[in-house]
Design a protein around this nucleic acid. Structure first.
Lengths: 111, 111
DNA sequence: TCTTGCGCTTCTAATTCAGAAGCGCAAGAG
DNA sequence: CTCTTGCGCTTCTGAATTAGAAGCGCAAGA
């Protein structure tokens, strides 16, 4: 498995360690943004297979990898060994994604 | 070449056509967020090779693909056939990414 | 006991990305 | 004019990532 990007360390595509670069690397992996999004939508902790279904049947192998990355990054955490939820940091990230949601609507109207 | 996600149409990973899903698909491709970011940082229009250098020598083939996608999505545009710049919509997207930058700093301090 | 669904891993094939090489062009140097 | 340099961008091949099916061990019902 690859390395999970962390602020303060060189990441793929940037050796400066600037936090935003680590964030762009982590979040720019397939399904990562979506997994975070769906974890939030659920509200309550979400199980693995349920989460997989919410993400339009994404590959279980990739979901497993993404969850491990998000756990290492402190964004998501296993609740009781059977479900997953966002950490406070993860919730903050979703909040930070809010304007992006608004933008996507503006984008939709422009087409 | 793959298809560029557009709001209102089914995209990879979601057949609902919800704008946010199209956005998450488009932005969740490698280097996409970074390219947008660097196009903004430049301020003035940026040339292909210059942009490639700013993105830590990312692969030219992928940069070419990403620029085509961003152009189709109405986020970036060729200035005069020799440089690239963000459209107003692209500028809005960077603005929408602002909170994400803030979050990455909070993330950095948590580690 | 038998089925069902769970979290998650493991495998192989398809897709995507990386990195080097190079094309055609234009601008300057000699 | 010729030669070099750098440009935007494409085209290749091998490497990395993702997709998708199959299945493991476990637990809770029927």
């Amino acid at each position: 498995m690859g390395t999970t990007p962390r602020p303060g360390r060189p990441v793929r595509g940037s050796d400066t360690g600037r936090p935003v670069m680590a964030a762009l690397d982590l979040l720019g992996r397939r399904w990562t943004l979506r997994v975070i999004w769906e974890l939030h939508q659920g509200g309550a902790p979400v199980g693995f297979r349920d989460l997989q279904r919410r993400c339009d049947a994404m590959s279980s192998s990739v979901l497993s990898t993404r969850l491990a990355e998000l756990r290492e990054a402190g964004i998501a955490a296993p609740t009781d060994g059977a479900t997953w939820h966002l950490t406070p940091l993860g919730d903050d990230l979703v909040t930070a994604m809010g304007p992006l949601l608004d933008w996507s609507h503006a984008w939709a109207e422009r087409q």
